[in-house]
């Protein structure tokens, strides 16, 4: 699915029109095929601005952003780039276009002029991955917030992109809706899709491969989620990040020598380890 996908940012600077400060101030980042990377940072850090560079919604003021070798400043490459990188935004109500579930999921493939039988099979596949099979004919307004957001993901999937960018896609959902989206994302990554997840919730990055912290438009840190947690709550707080309570418990237990730090910070694994 993601074979050969790669996105490279070199020295990316970006300022919004009529502002003096740079929203991104020299960002170098490489996103590789099949990885699940989280971009973390407080409100206003530049993480959404960075996300919008990944599918050429924004182009760098300075520096370069390449998606599979295509320059995002090249207008002739835009269509190809947007087929490679799909985006899901925060508010599901702002990104659903049709009145009925299956019509919404079919919007992309229909616009791409695909044959009806291909559209059908893609829509069925996308809806089933997102747990919306059986809802094909439901009016969109009858869906819950979590279901709507899963429909937004399905609409993106129907274009079969190798890379999916989620820009705070769980921020407006309740805890159950958040879990639903995270389950879909984990499943997609398991199938080889490259995932870029923008969030400020550390709970959501435990299972991703790599974390990049952005603050003040600058990439401050990169590493695995466990290395990030190991930096300690105080440093994380300076980046506006809060260590989830269970991670703090896990750290305390590791620090006290009661737990091998190789045990991942999940309640089930920690419980099993303690009972051993």
């Amino acid at each position: 699915m993601a074979e050969g996908f790669v996105s490279v940012l070199k020295g990316v600077r970006f300022s919004y029109p009529r502002t003096d400060t740079a929203a991104l101030d020299g960002v170098d980042l490489e996103i590789r095929a099949g990885e699940w990377i989280a971009l973390l940072g407080p409100n206003g850090s530049g993480k959404s601005t960075l996300a919008k560079h990944l599918n050429a919604l924004l182009a760098p003021t300075q520096g370069v952003c390449l998606v599979c070798g295509r320059d995002t400043r090249d207008e002739k490459a835009l269509e190809a780039i947007r087929r490679l990188v799909a985006m899901v935004f925060q508010n599901p109500d702002n990104q659903l276009v049709a009145a009925v579930v299956e019509e919404d999921a079919a919007f992309g493939p229909e616009n791409a002029g695909l044959p009806p039988e291909v559209i059908r099979s893609r829509v069925d596949w996308a809806l089933s991955v997102c747990g919306l099979s059986g809802k094909e004919r439901s009016p969109v307004y009858t869906l819950s917030g979590g279901q709507k957001q899963r429909l937004a993901v399905a609409g993106a999937l129907a274009m079969e992109p190798p890379c999916l960018v989620l820009d705070e896609a769980t921020a407006m959902l309740d805890p159950q809706g958040r879990t639903e989206i995270m389950d879909v994302v984990a499943d997609l990554n398991g199938r080889g899709m490259t995932i870029v997840q923008i969030t400020h919730r550390l709970e959501e990055v435990v299972s991703c491969d790599r974390v990049a912290v952005i603050d003040g438009g600058v990439l401050r840190w990169q590493g695995t989620p466990l290395d990030l947690f190991a930096l300690g709550p105080d440093l994380l707080a300076t980046w506006g990040l809060e260590t989830p309570p269970f991670i703090r418990l896990w750290q305390e237990l590791c620090g006290a020598g009661l737990l091998d730090p190789a045990v991942p910070p999940s309640p089930k694994e920690v419980l099993d380890a303690l009972c051993r």
Binding site: A171, H200, G240
Partner: peptide, 10 residues
Amino acid sequence: TAGLDSRGRR
């Protein structure tokens, strides 16, 4: 607190 980061929430 909907949509606020941890600093904003606190």
